[in-house]
């Protein structure tokens, strides 16, 4: 069965393009445009991986991360943060909350992101 990936990102065009790439790689994509609905989908669908942006409407990525880690039924789901926030403080905060990797969107090509995703499932 195809692995389910939840992509929480408020930028429609980024959703479309990365979603298309990952679908082509054979994954099932669940999309959320804000932090709150992202968390709800994560609780309901229990995806195999979450790709998370940090600056999000309704509930920011840090709060989503904290809520996921506080909920035992979804706390083990691996999370990759995809953000253009690159301050040491933000990276440290995410790593301390147990994210798998922290990728700056502009510094990675679609292929490299797909590579990182496939590494999670190895």
């Amino acid at each position: 069965m195809a692995k389910k990936i939840l992509f929480i990102e408020d930028e429609m065009r980024l959703q479309e393009v990365l979603g298309a790439k990952l679908k082509a790689e054979g994954y099932e994509i669940l999309a959320a445009m804000d932090g709150k609905s992202g968390l709800e989908i994560a609780e309901k669908e229990k995806p195999d991986l979450i790709l998370l942006d940090l600056i999000l409407p309704k509930m920011d990525g840090f709060h989503v991360l904290e809520a996921i880690k506080a909920n035992p039924s979804i706390s083990v789901i691996p999370i990759i943060v995809l953000s253009n926030l690159e301050s040491g403080k933000d990276i440290e905060r995410c790593l301390s909350l147990g994210v798998r990797s922290y990728l700056a969107k502009t510094n990675y090509s679609l292929e490299e992101i797909a590579q990182k995703v496939s590494e999670v499932f190895k």
Partner: peptide
């Protein structure tokens, strides 16, 4: 943000 969109779409 727009730079990432352009980059990924070109990819």
């Amino acid at each position: 943000t727009p730079l990432s969109i352009i980059k990924w779409q070109l990819n």
